[in-house]
Design a protein around this nucleic acid. Structure first.
Length: 212
DNA sequence: CATTTGATGTTCT
DNA sequence: GAACATCAAATGC
């Protein structure tokens, strides 16, 4: 990674980007680049799939029934990372939205890896295809070495941030039902890049591939 | 190919 | 005890 290659991706999106209605942030995050720096190096990629969760009206949101030790970060200022353990096994990364004190966040469900591919391949283990490196929220966190140790991190910091994608072109964005939940699953609060192979599809009715 | 199952922390009942 | 914003491996057609 030369300085030249990193030159366009070092500036985090401003906090004002996150301090907006959650559905707008979820949609606008599609096509942005998520980056993660550890002692091992830099890794990340283009966000291609998100889901919105708004505790005030959303029975599927973790904070729907109030604040707990796990979901406390959902109440933090916009631009905070909310990372929780899923099914006792995997981790999931959200970006907190809306005003501090309002529990709302966007789950990052998949990225198209563009930076630090070898590092992510090592983290994901042998036999994992590049398509599956970060396709799904649990896989994404494993590829980026994110755990609950990073819960509450500031996305305007230098270890985890989101930035404009260099040479970005408009992407075809679709809104779909959310995945893997039972409450209010039919709300069109999931956003994805149409036809993008790095988007997860587990839990969606099988059959005709490629249509979303 | 599709479906089932094991892993198991946090929260709720 | 059960459910859950998941994933990979095993099993069944």
């Amino acid at each position: 990674m030369t300085g030249l290659e990193e030159a366009g991706i070092l500036t985090p999106l401003p906090r004002a980007f996150y301090d907006r209605p959650t559905l707008e942030v979820a949609r606008d995050l599609i096509g942005k680049t998520l980056l993660r720096r550890t002692a091992e190096g830099l890794a990340g990629g283009v966000i291609v799939e998100t889901e919105a969760y708004v505790a005030a009206i959303d029975p599927a949101a973790h904070a729907y029934r109030g604040k707990t030790p796990r979901n406390a970060s959902m109440f933090a200022r916009p631009g905070t990372a909310y990372i929780y353990r899923s099914y006792g096994v995997h981790y999931c990364l959200n970006v907190v939205t809306e005003t501090e004190g309002v529990a709302a966040a966007v789950l990052l469900r998949a990225i198209r890896p563009t930076v630090g591919l070898d590092l992510m391949r090592r983290r994901r283990g042998p036999g994992i295809s590049d398509r599956d490196l970060a396709r799904g929220p649990g896989r994404l966190c494993q590829a980026l070495a994110l755990t609950t140790a990073d819960d509450g991190a500031d996305l305007l910091g230098d270890a985890l941030w989101i930035t404009e994608t260099p040479d970005a072109r408009p992407l075809p964005i679709v809104a779909t039902p959310r995945i893997g939940i039972t409450q209010a699953a039919d709300w069109l609060w999931r956003f994805a890049v149409a036809g993008e192979p790095h988007v997860s599809a587990r839990g969606v009715r099988s059959g005709t591939a490629g249509r979303e």
